[in-house]
Amino acid sequence: MSFAVARAVAWRTLHNVFTHPSLLIPSLIFPLFFFTAFAGGLSRVRDVPGFDFPLGYTAFQFAFVVLQSAAFGGVFTGFGIARDFESGFARRLMLAAPNRAGIVLGYGAAALIRWLFTVAVVTGVAFAVGMKVGGSGVDLFGLYALALLLNVAALLWASGVAMRLRTMQAGPVMQMPVFLTLFFAPVYVPLSLLKGWIHAVAVVNPLTRVLEAGRGFLAGSPTDVGAAFAAALALAALFSLWAVRGLRNAESAG
């Protein structure tokens, strides 16, 4: 029964996204834009003494952009949830769905499919501009698996906020922490080249492990894979509690 609800909710979200360019394009443009601005504009960073990523700056940034697109894909779906609460449409869903967990599941499935579309485009563009990959297909799959967990975690975070605040004004509250977590990881240079306060922040940032492992997968020399998956899973588990409590909060607020 909750599967039927999930499928209906996912259909509606995806139908809206794929038939309205204004909803589809931002989630597609942002990663491509970051990829262009960073991989293109900052490629000289590979010449900084101590930069040791073997595949060049395009692949180095590709790993970040894949993770960033996953996280923002989840947040954009969170915007949709907030919009549904603000317009009252969520109430319609809550009323129709015998099992309300299916609603969250449906939004989650939609976020995932939406991200898969984005990442397919980003990957296509990366290979088209000559990105080199050291790892095998299995390794590449490792990077995508990490990103997928991040997509789920970000969606659960954003949906938890959306269900608590139930207004589009909550957009920055969903987006800003994700943005900061992403950018307080070693985005531009490897962790070893960060100095000072940003190094201290990056070391404790769970996303650092995910990003470094993702780059390891691309280079064909995966490192700290266990820790990275553990960090991503922990984020997803933590935010699933946050989202479920958010759902209870929305239910008790009517």
Partner: peptide, 28 residues
Amino acid sequence: PANVVFPLVFPMLLLAVNSGGLKAETRL
């Protein structure tokens, strides 16, 4: 408030992020 805070805070956040992350550029 959002119209005051966002133009003040967001550029400062981006400054913090980039000046931390790209500090290594000064060694080029």
